[in-house]
Design a binder for these strands. Sequence first.
DNA 1: GCATTAGTTGAACAACTGTTCAACTAATGC
DNA 2: GCATTAGTTGAACAGTTGTTCAACTAATGC
Lengths: 117, 117
Amino acid sequence: MEKQPICDCDVIHEDVVDKVRENMSEKDEYIDLAALFKIFGDGTRVQILHALEQSEMCVCDIAYLLGLTKSAVSHQLKALRLSNLVKFRREGQNVYYSLADNHVKTILDIGFEHLRE
Amino acid sequence: MEKQPICDCDVIHEDVVDKVRENMSEKDEYIDLAALFKIFGDGTRVQILHALEQSEMCVCDIAYLLGLTKSAVSHQLKALRLSNLVKFRREGQNVYYSLADNHVKTILDIGFEHLRE
DNA sequence: GCATTAGTTGAACAACTGTTCAACTAATGC
DNA sequence: GCATTAGTTGAACAGTTGTTCAACTAATGC
């Protein structure tokens, strides 16, 4: 692993930093991780996810529940789909969305727990 | 709880929606939750958090480790502080940061796990 | 006191994000 | 076939966000 660019300070705990550096992952992994959490970083999307925790719903249901347009909901569902957080099935004219796995619930729960402290 | 504004569709599964609505929290709670995850939604911040998982470090250490300026790091640490994700102690000229609690590690771990699937 | 270094902070600017709007596709029923 | 409704999508625009820069505070050592 090559040296990082110079920061604007002189004294550092080089031994500590080197040790930490060994256990750091590639920068891209952190960017991917951040991209995942970015999805949870929007009020509309966490509402959708929390709603889907209780029942699968079609786009109209979600739009009605949250007081949004189908378009706005669909855009957000697309983001959730691309991050593999929701799955869907078409039934006639309706497309039913549900949570992809239980990571979603776990993450939301821990988040709520942190806020309650 | 008052009715939501009208969405742009006719047919909805009102029984399902009403049942889901009963178990939804206040909108503000979702906004707070989203604000928390927004903090995890940046590559620099998750790098800082993951680094602090291994050892407390001063601002310069982190800046050197990640190849950033003290200013950039300090701004991000402020965001992390305001969300109660990190704590700090001053020792002379240095300010040492560390994780506030183990929610941080748990959240990062589940995030990594989701990505690996 | 002064000089130096660690760290913070506000403003500014570029990059990104979420909703709206309009146009579109997909399925149903006539 | 056509009309209707569910859902998707791209462009546009306002609002937000992260880094940089410059100015600042805090602690140390002389």
